[in-house]
Amino acid sequence: MKKFWAWGALIFGLLYFILPLIGMTNFSLKMRRGVYSLDAYAVVLGDPRFQQTFTYSILMALATIVFGVLLVVPTAYWVRLKLPGLRPYIEFVTLLPLVIPAIVIVFGYIRLYNTSSWLPLTGSITGTNILLMFGYATLALPYMYRSVDTGLRSIDIATLTEAAQSLGAGWTTILAKIILPNVLVAVLSGAFLTFAIVIGEFTMAALLNRPAFGPYMQLLGANRAYEPAALAVMSFALTWGCLGLIQLVSRFQKGAQSAT
């Protein structure tokens, strides 16, 4: 009886998730009337705007990851080592992007950094790109910080730092050669999640008028029938890929730990 109920709940849940995936896959293959074909994918992949926006979003994602790591790893390390009293406040701040909707944040950017302000970032393309990257870093902050902080908790950073200092290492060396390798898996997890968030992000890119993948998908969705489904399948595969990689690296770390 209990098992019957449990299987029922599980199967309902599975259907809920599988049916839309089947629906979109099915739809994406039906561009040619009457037969299944990969035409929709061919059209999408052949579209120069797809190539441009996809490349743009990948570059933005990589830039966001690099910036995020450079910002979060030293901060999380330093706060754990020297400013433990600040931790609750920092943790609260890093959770704020979950509370304040992205659309509100980007609205603030537009008003704060317009052409007539003290920091006219939106006045130039490069400036807007940088602003968007900062915006993405803000969106990814909760995930990145949490991931790295959890990673740091599992190693004894105070002892590692003192050991490195006693051997004559400077701060840069300590961070790059001691701390970073030890929290690499946590950093990678955060990085893949950041990648998954940035690659399809719509709101910020659309409102800052940047040619990113998210607005492109939306535009295509408003004007075409089959191509959006193909895009959805590819995005889902991409998200799967990122999350799969997180699983893979964390499993790799578990293996490495049990081997030592």
Partner: peptide
């Protein structure tokens, strides 16, 4: 965006 597409297709 892709989630919306998936549900439109379903």
């Amino acid at each position: 965006v892709p989630l919306a597409f998936a549900f439109l297709a379903t």
